[in-house]
Nucleic acid binder design. Structure first.
Lengths: 206, 206
DNA sequence: AGCTCTGTCTACCAATTGGTAGAGAGACGT
DNA sequence: ACGTCTCTCTACCAATTGGTAGACAGAGCT
């Protein structure tokens, strides 16, 4: 492990704690404790709790942008395959670190100012996705619909399933390696079916 | 309008506040204030905050069971239509009162004991849904897959989109009457496509 | 009348919250 | 050796947290 700075370690712990239990439920003392430092050191690096939340949101946005950008760049031309690639890329870090998407969800209950700040950071990603969906719909390679809402629905599906372990436990799913692979495959099939063009029947008929 | 008891009013306010901002972020004082009573009156009806959370969860579960049960009972035979009916039934209260599903989501970050208690209350609903999906898959009227995971995915989609206004705002969606209808229609089309049998040619009959 | 039960209140309490003030230790250039 | 800058610390603080103890008013029963 290359020596991470105190600031980085604080952001890291705060991301996990905020994402898992919510911003209001986590105290600066607890964050400091998991970092191995005093609360005042946290307040040295981040002037207030709000400031820390801002920093964490910025860090999350940056991580998501990097991951998704790379996936999109390396993806094939077919829109369904491309969406597959993005989901695949997001799925791994999201499952290994549920707090990541959990924090994105948390934004809805933060103040509108902070929601706005995150929105600005990821809006290029969102705009590109919506534009892409619209283009492919026009080209007949995706099911027709409102690209904005469909983007939000796809997001809701992925984020929802990744951040609600209790929903999966409620149906008796287990989080072992086999379960994870099955979940990922079902999620991909679900999204493919939801987004595929009506007349483009995948395998047979036509 | 008929005089609701203090207990009911406390449950009501607590549901809205807990669902909107999270259990930890809402104090007993704040709940009492919105009810128009002192904190100690809240503690008279519910021995502790945990106790109140339990009560709210029980109330939420009961409301969901009633709504969904009625929708299922009145729904037609075709599985896609049936799922439509359930979504329709859940969508209205969920949008009018985001806290309802918001609280269900909140369960994931509560203790496992409380998650378990809610799980027990709604497990009949879940079991029935999973069994139904499995049967219809066997009958070839729904896309093949793991009924458990697909139930969870459909739940994640509906709950996710209903509880994350920020995601919709990020794509420029507006929550007026027109937007709501469009959202509901897109959600239904999305789920229909995601769940429809592969070879079932879309029969858009109105 | 008196007595009990129910529901709401005032008065506290210890613990925790986010945050301020400032001391002290080390590194570094002069 | 000196001052300065960076970083972490101890010592506090006012406000808020969930919760306890018990007073008080009304309704209903005897």
């Amino acid at each position: 492990m290359p020596e991470r700075t105190t600031r980085e370690r604080i952001l890291d712990s705060a991301l996990d704690l905020f994402g898992a239990r919510g911003v209001d439920a986590v105290s600066l003392d607890e964050i400091a404790r998991t970092v191995g430092v005093r609360k005042q050191t946290v307040l040295y690096w981040f002037a207030s709790k709000d400031d820390l939340v801002d920093g964490v949101l910025e860090s999350v946005a940056a991580q998501l942008v990097v991951v998704i950008d790379a996936a999109v760049r390396a993806a094939p031309d077919d829109p369904l395959d491309r969406i597959d690639a993005v989901v695949r890329a997001v799925f791994r870090p999201a499952v290994r670190r549920p707090a990541l998407l959990g924090l994105v969800r948390e934004v809805s209950r933060l103040g509108p100012e902070q929601a706005e700040r995150l929105r600005v950071r990821i809006s290029p990603l969102v705009d590109r996705a919506v534009g892409y969906l619209g283009d492919e719909m026009d080209r007949g390679r995706l099911r027709q619909g409102d690209p904005k809402i469909i983007a939000a629905l796809a997001y809701a599906t992925v984020t929802g399933i990744a951040t609600e372990p209790e929903a999966l436990r409620a149906v008796g799913w287990s989080a072992d390696a086999v379960g994870l692979r099955r979940l990922r495959d079902e999620l991909r099939a679900f999204l493919r079916a939801a987004l595929a063009a009506d007349d483009a029947v995948p395998r047979e008929a036509g």
